[in-house]
């Protein structure tokens, strides 16, 4: 029996170890090591911080990096503000069948590939697109309007793409809030805003945090939406990583970029967990 349990344990442990070791831990160590390598000649390398110096020394890299971070935070905040009233409505106002139908309606668009969603926004927003034609038809504008290829279009796409990941955790936490607690808040003289601030938001905090983390990660790591909807000025950091790896074939610099992106995302996730007193196990697991 004892040896049986031991064999069982080893059999269950091996896949976990292989998966995390070979696909997560070692590749990321390799990524870090490669980012510390400097090419000094054909097939000749040495260990140095040259790639990081290049990153911090070139304003384009640094500006793109910061811009990506700030825009991702903005996308996260917008997603939260837009999604919260809808989540509250579905969790508290809608009842029975209507509730499950609304919930499902929220999910359906996201079973569709991100590419299809982005394509949809392109058809709507571009110069020959639906909005432009509608505006011309209604006489509000004279010529075609280009609404694609700018930051606003990109933001619409980013918020759209990650909405589900905000709405679902919000609904889940809000549903667990007992109606009578809200009533008690009003009975004790609270008003709409104060009940929201003192009762609803603190209760929904785990949902807000896990939703925000996922949305932030998805925005930061997004490649498709900034490439297809953003303009020439909306360069996203992932596009630079892609360029170094696939176009320039400068893997060393690309690895340094990748590692910076990893550090940035870990830092912000950590800060968010820290500020709200949550743990990764509680919010994700």
């Amino acid at each position: 029996m004892q040896t049986g349990a031991r064999i069982g344990f080893i059999l269950l442990f091996a896949p976990l170890l292989l998966w995390l070791g070979l696909l997560i831990v070692i590749p990321h160590i390799d990524l870090f090591l490669l980012s510390l390598r400097e090419r000094i000649g054909v097939g000749e390398y040495r260990t140095s911080l040259a790639n990081y110096i290049a990153f911090f020394g070139e304003p384009l890299y640094l500006v793109t990096f910061m811009r990506t971070a700030i825009m991702s935070v903005l996308a996260t905040v917008l997603t939260l503000i837009i999604g919260f009233p809808v989540a509250f409505y579905i969790a508290k106002f809608a009842k029975g069948r209507a509730q499950s139908v609304l919930f499902l309606l929220c999910l359906v668009p996201f079973w569709v590939s991100e590419l299809v969603r982005t394509f949809g926004w392109m058809i709507l927003l571009r110069e020959t697109g639906i909005f432009s034609e509608l505006l011309q038809w209604s006489g509000l504008v004279d010529g075609p309007v280009e609404m694609l290829y700018n930051d606003a279009a990109m933001m619409v796409g980013l918020v759209y793409t990650s909405m589900l990941f905000m709405i679902v955790p919000l609904i889940t936490t809000l549903e667990s809030l007992d109606d009578s607690v809200i009533e008690a808040g009003y009975d004790l003289g609270g008003t709409g805003p104060s009940v929201l601030r003192e009762i609803v938001i603190p209760h929904a905090m785990p949902g807000i945090v896990s939703g925000s983390i996922v949305v932030f990660m998805l925005s930061l790591g997004n490649y498709l939406t900034p490439t297809m909807l953003g303009g020439k000025d909306s360069l996203w950091f992932t596009e630079m990583i892609y360029a170094q790896f696939i176009v320039r074939f400068n893997w060393e610099l690309g690895a340094a970029f990748g590692f910076m992106l990893l550090i940035l995302s870990s830092l912000i996730v950590w800060a968010m967990l820290r500020l709200t007193g949550q743990t990764l196990e509680k919010t994700m697991g």
């Binding site: 070979l22 983390i213 892609y242 992106l261 996730v269």
Partner: peptide, 16 residues
Amino acid sequence: PLVIPGIVLGISILIF
């Protein structure tokens, strides 16, 4: 893996 950007996951596996 849930909090590692997909593109970073891709390049690290590519490098390894």
